[in-house]
Each structure stands twice: as structure tokens, then as C-alpha cells.
Computed example of a mutant assay.
Amino acid sequence: MKAQSKAQQRAAGAALSAKRGETKVKDLQGASKDMYDSMSEDELEEMASTDHDGLPDEVDD
């Protein structure tokens, strides 16, 4: 799944970092914490690696 906004891509990157043990899970907040709990490392990697050129900063739900 590709990220739909820059904010989503950054949140996925933060969650991926925690999954890999590079940052502490307790430091995650909001969407990145939800992503950490509900997505696999492969899913997070795919979302975090989305090219953010042309993506909006945020998307309305």
C-alpha cells in the first residue's frame, strides 16, 4: 500500500523505525503508534518508501 500523504509516509517511517528497534515504541504517538500495532514490517516499509514528491501534506479522511 502506498502512502497517500507526506504525513502518512512520515508516520509509517516512524513506526518502521520502532519495529526495527531503532527507536523506542513508547516515543510513538497517534497514527505511527496505530501503524506499529496493526501493520507488518513489510507493509510499513512499502508505505514509508513511497516517493513523497507530488503527495499532499495531509489528506482529509
Rank of each mutant, 00 (worst) to 15 (best):
R20W: 12
K6E: 02
E45G: 07
E22G: 06
M1S: 09
S5P: 01
S40R: 03
L16Q: 07
D53I: 04
R10W: 05
S40H: 02
G54E: 10
M35S: 06
L44M: 05
K33R: 15
H52W: 10
A31K: 10
D57Q: 09
D60A: 13
Q8V: 06
D37G: 11
G21R: 09
E45K: 15
Q8T: 01
E43P: 01
L55D: 00
S5I: 00
E22V: 13
Q4G: 05
A14N: 11
K2F: 08
P56F: 07
E46Q: 12
A12T: 09
S40M: 05
G21T: 09
S17Q: 12
D53C: 02
K24H: 15
E41A: 14
H52M: 04
K19P: 05
M35V: 05
V25S: 08
V25E: 15
K2D: 11
S17D: 12
G54Y: 09
H52E: 10
Q29V: 13
Y36R: 07
E41T: 15
S49Y: 02
M47T: 05
G21S: 13
L44H: 00
M35K: 10
E58C: 04
K33S: 12
D42K: 09
D42Y: 08
S38Y: 07
P56T: 05
A31Y: 06
M39H: 11
G30Q: 04
K26L: 11
R10I: 06
H52K: 10
M47K: 12
A3C: 06
R10C: 02
M1G: 08
S49W: 02
D27E: 15
L28W: 08
D61S: 10
A12K: 03
E41F: 11
D61F: 10
A18E: 09
A31F: 07
Q8W: 01
Q4K: 13
A14Q: 13
G13D: 11
D60F: 14
E22I: 14
E41Q: 15
G54L: 07
D61H: 09
E41K: 12
H52I: 02
D37Q: 13
M39N: 05
D60M: 11
M47D: 01
A11D: 15
T50H: 04
M35W: 11
K24L: 14
R20Q: 15
M1V: 04
L44W: 00
